[in-house]
Each structure stands twice: as structure tokens, then as C-alpha cells.
């Protein structure tokens, strides 16, 4: 049975979608069958990293949620078309032939506003996850969540086998992450992992930060990823850790990916 890995952060801007795309890619590179669901329906974004735009995007998660299609119909095989982008996205091109499937969220304004207005059946979302894992025979299903703790996000947290919380080294994130950790424990999430992103290089003592975070949340800190101009320059166009494998950000990200795969 495949594992559900939810990637979450209490506040926006932590680099959650980018991290999710990179983690899923790294795991897929090891030969695992991986799915990525963009449940950040209010502000979707991960599709860009996998080379999808409005014209190439057909049916989406929104169609499934409103009963217009089956979930398997909206799973895009990233590995089938990754090679085409060899020049514009050499990182992503390495995913050619890999078993990586993206379930995007609609970027059409009308469909986003419907979700905001009417909400959706979280039960159906869960059914979709389970069906995906079975039908595509996934080893891992990564869920890119919406920041904060709304009902949809709580559902994703509740059904995860692994919950990865991303925080930046500032007190607002520390506080919000504390509440999220408490909720995850209350919902019996068995594996809680932490990751720091956007850490200003040389500003913190690695060990000090690790000790403080692990003591406060009683969960392992799997990586401290640096704030990087190179990353900003990538402008969400490519899978950074595949394109620049020797970059410090990529090295730390691989540690997080390894921690996810090491979790039983």
C-alpha cells in the first residue's frame, strides 16, 4: 500500500510547492511510482514546475471533485512528456521515463471561485486519493496543501502517513508550526517530519537550530535549506534539485527526500 505524504506549512511563502515538486521528483528518480496532488485549490502553482500551463491542461482535480470525471483521468504522466523540455527545463527532462503523475488543480478563475464559494466534499477528495494509490499503483502520493488549517487541509493531515511541516526560521512560523504539530498529534499522524526553508546562510548555528526545533516539537528536523538567489532566479520553471544537484539547497533537499523514504 502506497504512502500518503502531506507537505504543509502554517503560513504561505515557505516554498511549499517548490519543495513538494522537488521531493516528488527526487523520489521518482529512485524508481518509485509517485503521484503529486495539488490541493492548494485556492492558489494552485505546482503545475508550472512540471511544465503544465492553461493550454496543455485538460481536466483537473476540480472536475473530479464536482463529479465530472474519474480521478485517474486527471493524472498527467510527467515522465511521458518531460524529455520534450530538454532545453528550457533540463532538470525536469531527467524525469523522462520515470513514473511521476501530477494531479493539477484548475487555474481557471471561474473554477477557483466555485471552490471558494461552494467548497467541496472532502470525503470525495479522500476517496480520490485512495483510488489513485490503488489504480496507478503508487508507492508515494505527495499532497501539496493550502497553507493554514482549514477543513480541507485538516483532512489531508488526518489521512497522511507522513506529514512534512515546512517552516522558516522566524517566530511567527515557530508559533504556527507548534499548533499544527499539536493538531497532527491529536489526529494520530504517525510520522511527523520537519524541514526549515529559506534559512539565511551563515546566520544560524545549524546544531543550535536543530536542537531547539526538535526539543520544541519532538519531531526530527530533516533538513535546513538555505535562502537562495539562484532558487529565486529559477522562477519556478524547472525542478531545481535536478538541474543544480550540487547546490546547497539541493543537497539538503535530498536529505529530506531520504528521510521520507526511510520512514516506515
Amino acid at each position: 500500500m502506497g504512502k500518503i505524504v502531506s507537505i504543509h506549512s502554517f503560513r504561505g511563502g515557505t516554498g511549499k510547492s517548490n519543495t513538494t515538486a522537488n521531493l516528488a521528483s527526487q523520489v521518482a528518480m529512485t524508481g518509485k511510482r509517485v503521484g503529486v496532488v495539488d490541493t492548494d485549490i485556492q492558489s494552485p502553482g505546482i503545475h508550472v514546475l512540471f511544465g503544465l500551463d492553461e493550454t496543455s491542461m485538460g481536466k483537473t482535480l476540480n472536475d473530479f471533485l464536482y463529479g465530472k470525471c474519474e480521478i485517474a483521468e486527471v493524472a498527467y504522466p510527467v515522465g511521458d512528456y518531460a524529455a520534450a523540455a530538454k532545453e528550457s527545463a533540463p532538470g525536469r527532462a531527467q524525469l523522462a521515463g520515470k513514473d511521476l503523475f501530477l494531479i493539477p488543480s484548475s487555474i481557471r478563475g471561474r473554477e477557483i471561485s466555485r471552490v471558494l464559494r461552494e467548497g467541496y466534499d472532502v470525503g470525495r477528495l479522500n476517496e480520490g486519493f485512495q483510488t489513485l494509490i490503488q489504480n496507478i499503483n503508487l508507492d508515494y502520493l505527495f499532497i501539496d496543501t493550502h497553507p493554514g488549517l482549514n477543513e480541507e487541509t485538516l483532512l489531508s493531515i488526518a489521512i497522511s502517513d507522513i506529514l512534512l511541516l515546512i517552516l522558516r526560521p522566524d517566530n511567527q512560523d515557530f508559533q504556527g508550526t507548534a499548533v499544527t504539530v499539536d493538531i497532527a498529534r491529536s489526529l494520530d499522524v504517525s510520522n511527523l517530519l520537519l524541514m526549515v526553508n529559506k534559512a539565511v546562510p551563515n546566520k544560524y548555528t545549524y546544531e543550535n537550530l536543530k536542537t531547539q526545533i526538535e526539543t520544541a516539537y519532538k519531531a526530527p528536523l530533516t533538513g535546513i535549506l538555505p535562502l537562495s538567489f539562484d532558487m529565486a532566479d529559477n522562477a519556478s520553471k524547472d525542478i531545481f534539485s535536478l538541474r543544480y544537484p550540487d547546490h546547497d539547497w539541493s543537497k539538503e533537499l535530498r536529505k529530506v527526500a531520504q528521510a521520507v523514504m526511510d520512514t516506515n
Partner: peptide
């Protein structure tokens, strides 16, 4: 000053929000 960045969690607020 930067090295001793300390994690500050308001425990009362944490419980309330939970």
C-alpha cells in the same frame, strides 16, 4: 545576536488556538 536566535512559542496562545 543572530546565533542565539531563540524559538519563542507563546504556550497560552498555542493551547487556545488548538
Amino acid at each position: 545576536q543572530v546565533e542565539t536566535l531563540t524559538l519563542q512559542i507563546d504556550e497560552v496562545r498555542r493551547r487556545q488556538e488548538f
